[in-house]
Design a protein around this nucleic acid. Structure first.
Length: 271
DNA sequence: ACGAGTGTTTCACC
DNA sequence: TGGTGAAACACTCG
């Protein structure tokens, strides 16, 4: 489920568990697919090295090391991290494992293998190369206005563009458009300044809320649209449509495809 | 059994 | 050149 809140949660987890320990070994299960450089080069950069800190831009995570090279991680659609000691506790789908000298392991989990691990010399160089915009968590109205300037396409796909608001993923885009009461297919150039301002505030507010709840959806405020998504109602709910109404006006939430992605919205509240 | 999917990149085509 | 839409990637889960 990695959108910005999950990646921020992983970042904090790694900060708390995996810094300042000597790396004794590195294993990557399917390096051709998931490692963006030669496995031997990757091992050489990390053996006897230590993680010293972390950074995050949008959904991209950076692990700084004592000797300079920076590990980059992107979690795709199903990436996660785990920290454990006993080999018997190795989680399913551990695609890359960093073995520390103290016996603990940091694992990169990814059932679907869409995640990527790489190496870079500088976060700034990486940011420029990937054209990542200003992190969505602190995105200002001015920055969002700038990102949307001269864009005529629908607002929702633009929110998913990592050059504009890196960190916003599919459900967050729906959530912020719901909170800002904007229709997902509104052409960006039709947004009034007050609407862009509302949208920027919603992006910051939703992300901060999600991070505070450590990205556990069920703990989100009851006025959030996320509770109307199918996968939130599925577990152990005999009343299948229990939450499928707008928390603001009770109109049934609708689903359609915008920019090829499943999109949930309230046809009454969002204009 | 079948289909959908939280992300990104690539490619064909306007 | 830029936008767009579809496909590809690989796999689980309902």
């Amino acid at each position: 489920m990695p959108e910005l809140p999950e990646v921020e949660t992983y970042r904090r987890f790694i900060e708390e568990t995996s810094l300042h320990q000597t790396i004794a070994e590195v294993e990557v299960q399917d390096p051709k697919r998931q490692l963006q450089l030669d496995l031997d080069d990757f091992r050489r950069a990390l053996l006897r090295n230590q993680f010293t800190g972390t950074q995050r831009i949008g959904k991209q995570l950076f692990l700084l090391t004592a000797q300079g090279p920076i590990v980059t991680m992107h979690f795709g659609m199903t990436g996660d991290v785990a920290y454990y000691r006993d080999a018997a506790d190795t989680p399913r789908f551990a695609r890359a494992i960093f073995f520390f000298e103290n016996g603990f392991k940091l694992a990169f989990l990814d059932s679907r293998k869409f995640g990527r691990i790489g190496l870079t010399q500088s976060v700034d160089a990486f940011r420029l190369q990937k054209k990542l915009g200003p992190d969505a968590l602190t995105l200002s109205t001015e920055e969002l206005t700038q990102g949307l300037a001269k864009k005529k396409s629908a607002i929702k796909p633009l929110l998913l563009d990592q050059r504009i608001a890196p960190g916003v993923g599919n459900w967050i885009a729906d959530e912020v458009l719901f909170q800002a009461q904007l229709e997902p297919e509104r052409p960006a150039h039709t947004l009034q300044p007050a609407e862009v301002d509302r949208l920027a505030s919603a992006i910051r507010e939703v992300l901060a809320t999600a991070i505070a709840a450590e990205a556990v959806y069920r703990d989100f405020p009851s006025h959030y649209l996320i509770h109307a998504r199918e996968w939130d109602t599925a577990p152990a709910s005999p009343v299948k449509d229990a939450h499928l109404h707008c928390p603001r006006c009770q109109t049934p939430i609708q689903k359609k495809y915008v920019g090829g992605r499943a999109t949930y919205f309230c046809p009454n509240c969002q204009v």
